[in-house]
Design a protein around this nucleic acid. Structure first.
Length: 751
RNA sequence: GGACGCUUAGCUCAGUUGGUAGAGCAACUCGUUUACACCGAGUGGGUCGCAGGUUCAAGUCCUGCAGCGUCCACCA
């Protein structure tokens, strides 16, 4: 109480809020509302000085998710860029949205359905499930949107998009249609990564390989010994493959046949010579299972061999397995090995064979390769570029999607930060295979293709094995006439994500937004989705628009816990950004994710870090209290600087330049670090300390010089710090004795 | 098997074009005489992973090695 009175005595008319430590909780919501009401998040409502457009599209968080530290880092970085550019006089647009995350969302709703009602999606049907999902996403949407706001994100909510809304749906259908008509989307029976658990296939990059130790069996196959880790797939093996140059098997000629005794009796084996066989591995001989293995499938394709399905889509063995038919392969394996052993066909078993198995990284189980009729984007097919604003490509040039993806990064039209990821990007594209875009889940953009039977056509596991006898129509609307059925499959969620920079701006309509804000200036995202997303955006945009989707790609690292581990529920090491905001404020949370983090490097975050930056926000608060209490009566505006004060101004000019240069180069960590140290160790420790004597009285000219210095330095520091810590700076700005009523967020950048 | 990254104070990391080793947190000592104890002044603590090389000068550039991590790859 006594202390309070002393404060009052010394600080006269200074805002009473300043007399207590900075309180983020009492400030942030109010300030955010002020910003939203101002309308300045919308580039169309910015004052006239804001001319050149600048745009970032927010990587859409999962609509059913909650904010995690990865999001928080992304929001902090993007908001820094946007606020910086806005203050610099750009018409800055940061466009928000959420993603349906089709597979994850459907799995979540199915899980709830099963837990609550013991029902599966097949029990309630497609329509009902979609209804439930829509309900669920609607409920969740507000949560994630509010959490994004709490970080202080200056997003233009009036332009909010959802990947499954009407406009985006139209864009997806249009993109599919154009790519189909351009010959870049095709349907084909190919080997895909089937997830028996989720009953859908996933694309190659969604595979997560896991190390596993399993027995490896050496089996007698006629005169040969073959090795396998999967004896349950071997029933149909009737091709035995070896390298053409292998001396050991010189006497066997390509195409020779021989009778061998096999699991369920004798089979006729055919010799195949193929260079893909590694002579040094095992015995240099293998039998193949084209239906369930990519390598084997390729061999079979090269030599035009039969392919037979051994395992069905639920993981059960097919009739070809004889007595084992209808049994799950996992259960059947020991029995099959036992039978082989009884027949004397097991030569030896290596119990500790280390190999990798494919699992679905999207929460599924073991993947079983299957041959299925699916939709693909052809990345190697040559076509004539329909339009081009791309460096090094002219309209009408013969190109492939792959070459487009490579070209725009090679030419430097798209810059990747940090630079080293260029290599990763090129390396991935070099061996890129066609992108399988159809999924057998229900939630998502249903493929805009219609089929009608024109007579007999064979079916393969419930899906037509080829398009013979089937009439196909590509389009959004059901075509005229009887018997048309839409393809039940949906598109890979990354297909719609690939359109994100322009679907959010209204494409395929020729909107003003699209014209103004595309290509966007920078795409900021985690390096873990460079292939999933960044590369696909380049593919879509270059083909459909003839434009790059963004000029720069800034890749941030993954946020890990204090020990460098991935944050996960099971480890219980999650640091929740909302907890941090609650305890230390959004500004502190932002700084903790910026300072000391170079692009592309993982960040180890601990609560101590966040607490440290809360102290910084408070330091600024106290500095402002001192400056305001000593300058509140004005009268120093026209003062001449004393020599040492002029030197301080020069020193500060250098800082401004340095900070601006760092921001220009996307070195946020360095810009933030410079500002942090200047405020604390130069402004507070030196400038303020040195001013105390003069402020006490004595020489009036000296005093006014100090007052002017303190005033100017504080004001400009608030501006420079605003992109980093917008809440506390905006709050302090409102306490400055201004003539004009304006928000700090649109003050001109002081350089 | 290939590629990339990391290795600097107890912990987390900066160190931008090579020029006498830095910050935050933690620890310890002292300080509450009026911006701030969410503070100030100070102390301790590093042969910059290892071994070579280039240079007047290397944490920084080059070569090799090791450990850790990540990504990619059709070894049955």
């Amino acid at each position: 109480m006594e202390k309070r009175l002393v404060f009052w005595y010394y600080f006269g008319n200074v805002n009473p809020k300043l007399l207590k430590p900075y309180n983020p909780k009492a400030t942030e919501a109010r300030v955010y509302e002020l910003w939203e009401k101002s309308g300045y998040f919308d580039p169309d409502k910015l004052p006239a000085r804001h001319k050149d457009p600048f745009s970032i599209v927010l990587p859409p968080p999962n609509v059913t998710g909650t904010l995690h530290m990865g999001h928080a880092a992304m929001l902090a970085i993007e908001d820094i860029v946007i606020r910086f550019e806005r203050m610099r006089g750009k018409r800055a647009l940061w466009l928000p949205g959420t993603d349906s995350a089709a597979l994850a969302t459907q799995a979540k709703v199915e899980d709830i359905l099963y837990k609550k009602e013991k029902k599966t999606r097949h029990d309630i049907g497609r329509e009902a499930l979609l209804g439930r999902i829509e309900e669920f996403t609607k409920e969740s949407e507000a949560t994630i949107v509010n959490q994004v706001k709490r970080m202080g994100s200056s997003l233009d909510w009036g332009r909010y998009s959802y990947t499954m809304d009407e406009t985006r749906n139209r864009a997806v259908n249009e993109a599919f249609k154009r790519m189909y008509e351009g010959g870049l989307i095709y349907r084909g029976a190919r080997i895909v990564n089937w997830d028996p658990k989720l009953q859908t296939n996933v694309s190659d990059i969604e595979i997560e390989w896991k190390e596993e130790t399993a027995p490896f069996y050496y089996l007698t196959y006629g005169p040969f010994t073959i090795g396998t880790a999967r004896p349950e797939t071997k029933f149909g093996d009737k091709y035995v493959v070896m390298h053409p140059d292998d001396e050991r098997y010189k006497k066997y000629k390509h195409g020779d046949t021989l009778e061998v005794e096999w699991v369920n009796g004798p089979v006729t084996a055919t010799i195949v010579k193929d260079k893909v066989v590694d002579m040094a591995f095992g015995t240099g001989v293998m039998t193949i299972t084209p239906w369930h293995d990519q390598t084997d499938f390729d061999i079979a394709a090269r030599h035009n061999l039969d392919k037979e399905q051994i395992i069905d889509q639920k993981g059960m063995l097919m009739p070809i397995a004889g007595e084992f038919a209808g049994v799950h392969w996992k259960k059947a394996r020991p029995a099959i090995v036992e039978k082989l052993r009884a027949k004397g066909l097991v030569e030896k078993v290596d119990e500790k064979y280390a190999h990798r198995v494919a699992t679905n990284s999207r929460g599924g189980g073991l993947l079983e390769p299957q041959v299925m009729l699916q939709w693909f984007v052809d990345v190697n097919k040559e076509f004539k570029l329909p339009h081009s604003e791309l460096d090094g490509f002219e309209k009408g040039d013969t190109v492939t999607l792959k070459r487009l993806m490579q070209g725009v990064v090679e030419s430097g039209q798209i810059e990747i930060i940090p630079d080293r990821f260029k290599k990763t990007y090129f390396h991935w594209i070099k061996d890129l295979r066609d992108w399988c875009i159809s999924r057998q889940i229900w939630y998502g953009h249903q493929i805009p293709v219609w089929y009608r039977s024109t007579g007999a056509h064979d079916r393969l596991n419930g899906t037509p094995s080829d398009s013979r006898g089937v009439e196909t129509h590509v389009g959004i609307e059901r075509p005229e006439g009887e018997g048309w059925e839409q393809d039940p499959d949906t598109l890979d969620t990354w297909f719609s994500s690939g359109l994100w920079t322009f679907s959010t701006l209204g494409w395929p309509d020729k909107t003003k937004d699209l014209e103004t804000f595309h290509p966007t200036d920078v795409l900021e995202t985690g390096y873990d989705i460079l292939f999933f997303w960044v590369a696909r955006m380049v593919l879509m945009s270059t083909y459909l628009l003839g434009q790059i989707p963004f000029k720069k790609v800034y890749l941030h690292g993954l946020v890990r816990d204090g020990k460098g581990r991935k944050m996960s529920k099971s480890l219980g090491n999650i640091i929740d950004p909302l907890d941090m905001i609650e305890k230390y404020g959004a500004d502190a949370t932002r700084l903790s994710l910026i300072i000391g983090t170079a692009p592309g490097n993982d960040l180890k975050l601990s609560e101590d870090r966040v607490r440290g930056y809360k102290h910084f926000a408070n330091k600024l608060w106290n500095v402002a209290r001192f400056v305001l209490s000593n300058t509140e009566h004005g009268g120093f505006e026209k003062a001449k600087f004393a020599k040492e004060d002029a030197a301080r101004m020069e020193e500060f000019e250098a800082l401004k330049k340095e900070v601006t240069a760092h921001l220009d180069k996307y070195e946020f960590y360095l810009a933030g670090d410079n500002l942090y140290h200047y405020l604390w160790h130069t402004f507070a420790d030196k400038v303020i300390e040195e001013s105390k004597e003069a402020l006490k009285g004595g020489n009036a000219a000296q005093k006014r010089s100090k007052q002017k210095l303190l005033h100017l330095l504080l004001e400009d520091q608030l501006k420079l710090l605003h992109p980093f810590i917008p809440f506390v700076t905006e709050e302090l700005w409102s306490m400055l004795p201004h003539k004009k009523q304006s928000l700090l967020m649109i003050e001109p950048w002081p350089i």
